[in-house]
Nucleic acid binder design. Sequence first.
DNA 1: AAAATAACCAACCGCCGACAC
DNA 2: CGTGTCGGCGGTTGGTTATTT
Length: 184
Amino acid sequence: MKGGNEYKKGLWTAEEDRVLMDYIMVHGKGKWNRIARETGLKRCGKSCRLRWMNYLSPSVKRGDFSEEEDDLIIRLHKLLGNRWSLIAGRVPGRTDNQVKNHWNTRLSKKLGIKKGKSEETRTNSEPISGELEKNIETPSGSNLSELPNKCPNGEKEGEIVTKEGSQSAIGELFFSGASRRSLS
DNA sequence: AAAATAACCAACCGCCGACAC
DNA sequence: CGTGTCGGCGGTTGGTTATTT
């Protein structure tokens, strides 16, 4: 506390990125809090994780969102509300932070959704139905329920595993998400 | 051309659940 | 079994860039 916290804040430098990359190449992901201790990097574990997840990970796609991605996000948001990690898990190459930013800065505007009334986006009168589920398609055209998890290198991606035999991927999505945080 | 404003993006913060000790 | 630590999530903020006046 006193004496300040030894962790650095703000934008990452190329050198810090390199140290983080090197560590992950050798030790793999996880154990984020060890990174600072073992590499001398002056970043807390959370910051390292965020940097990797949102920027350094090879599975992160950069650049503009395509029309298909926009559409997919809009549909998923209708179903899931602000469950950004769940939504991002269904949008290949996009992170929760990217999806969240994209939504807040562009899509919500595009749809005329006002900030501050979050539940506006998921009206109570709109049940999660099989109809909607059918409408969710990935840019590649495959149905949501058969979408494999992203992350080509086999990294575990969130808690959403489309269990074989599961009749409703949406159900899985929804409840696994709902279990994390109380749905207010 | 300069100043003001808007838009965008990266990163931080606080909270919560899972897990190890 | 209780406590502490860690990882993950969603909301929010701050800095930078683009656009408008």
